[in-house]
Amino acid sequence: MYRHNGENYFIVDAHVALWDARPENQRNIHGKQFIDCFYGYHRNLSPESEHWPYEEFLYQGGERLIKDLFVDGYVDHAIFQPALLSAFYRNGFGQTEEAFALAQKHPDKLTYNHCFDPRFEQKGLDRLRHEAERFQLKGVKLYTAEWQGDSRGYKLNEPWTYRYLEVCQELGIRNIHIHKGPTIRPLDRDAFDVADVDAAASDFTDLNFVVEHCGLPRLEDFCWIATQEPNVHAGLAVAIPFIHTRPRYFAQIIGELLYWLDEDRIQFSSDYALWTPRWLIERFVDFQIPEDMQGEYPPITVEQKKKILGLNAAAMYDIPVPAEAATTATAAGASSTSGPAEAVSVAAQPTEA
């Protein structure tokens, strides 16, 4: 738990990964292109003091993750959001067995989400049923731009994807995390477009669709969808590091999200190991909308920050929250914003222990 200025913040890092991008796991040049693009984001958006050597960035391992998140990083609970990328990596990019074993060893600290690809059709559906039981899945992470054979992406509103979402309903996998953000070389930018979230969210109202990276660079498109679909949430992975390099840009991002969605549908994510959570949490707790922008974006309150940093994801994943860290604010009436969010948001009630 992070304590600052007399306040307790329960931290849920809603998007972390263990990956292996070492040369021996790279299937082709695209594996190197992908991790090099990741490393570019890491170097360009991190303070110099937080830069990792390239060789360490290729593979972290569970011991370092535990230290970076839970010893040094203030995190109380973290959620694995893996990407397979088997067209680029021999044994996959996200390390399923290592991550799952770590989650089994530390169930109070880690939740393992898995991934599926609807282009595997019935064979993949059978595998999803097996993996849901084995991993006790509450959520999945989808990479709609992932390559598979001759295909360079798929959409959420395609027939086979709908069949997978129907099975998610059946199996109790309620949280659908989708990478809908900046492109990553060599993946195609348009395959990450947010438009297909609209239909899926409308047709599967009992599922939560967490749009990772809040649709960047299509923030406006995302906000217009999310304000109409109360089961659409925003993940701050990739967005929050702009708090360092482009604080006014981050103020615009978080200001727009608070206006359209309010604080009940926004989740903190470090996107580890692109970034480590410690400096992001410290910066966000201290962050405030610049005074000359407050005519359009009201100041961010402590209770809003508490929800974003952990209470929202804790409610979604039934993670117990110590009473001293829970906000006393009530649902929609707590927002200091005024706008469409007031009319359509569904509050994520924090769990009190």
Rank of each mutant, 00 (worst) to 15 (best):
Y112A: 13
N113Y: 12
E97N: 13
K109Y: 07
I79G: 15
Q81I: 15
L110M: 02
I79P: 10
A83I: 09
A83P: 10
F88E: 09
V75G: 03
A87W: 15
P82I: 02
D108S: 12
G92W: 01
P82H: 05
F88G: 11
Q104M: 14
T96L: 14
A87V: 14
K105L: 06
A101F: 12
A87E: 15
T96Q: 12
N113L: 14
Q81A: 15
K109S: 11
F93Q: 03
F80Y: 03
Y112W: 11
Q81R: 14
S86H: 09
F93G: 01
N91Q: 08
E98M: 11
Q81K: 10
R90G: 05
G94A: 06
F100Q: 05
L110G: 01
E98D: 11
G94Q: 05
L84T: 07
Q81M: 15
H77Q: 07
G92P: 00
L84P: 06
R90E: 01
H77R: 09
S86L: 14
T111D: 08
Y112P: 08
F100C: 00
G94E: 03
D108Q: 12
V75A: 02
H106A: 05
T111Y: 09
P82R: 02
N91L: 00
D76R: 11
H77I: 13
T111M: 07
P107H: 06
K109L: 10
L102H: 06
F80S: 02
I79M: 13
L110Q: 01
G92N: 01
F88H: 15
P107T: 04
E98C: 13
Q104I: 06
L102Y: 05
L85C: 10
P107Q: 02
Q104S: 08
F88P: 08
F80A: 04
E97L: 14
N91K: 00
D76G: 11
Q95G: 05
A99K: 07
T111I: 09
N113I: 15
E98H: 07
D108E: 08
A83K: 14
F80G: 04
A87C: 15
A87Q: 15
A87T: 13
H77C: 06
Q104R: 04
F93T: 00
F80R: 03
L84K: 11
D108N: 14
A83V: 08
F93H: 03
D76C: 15
Y112K: 10
Q104T: 08
D76H: 12
P82L: 04
A99H: 02
G92L: 00
G92S: 00
A103G: 09
T111H: 10
A78S: 02
L102P: 01
T96Y: 12
P107G: 05
E98R: 05
L84V: 06
V75S: 01
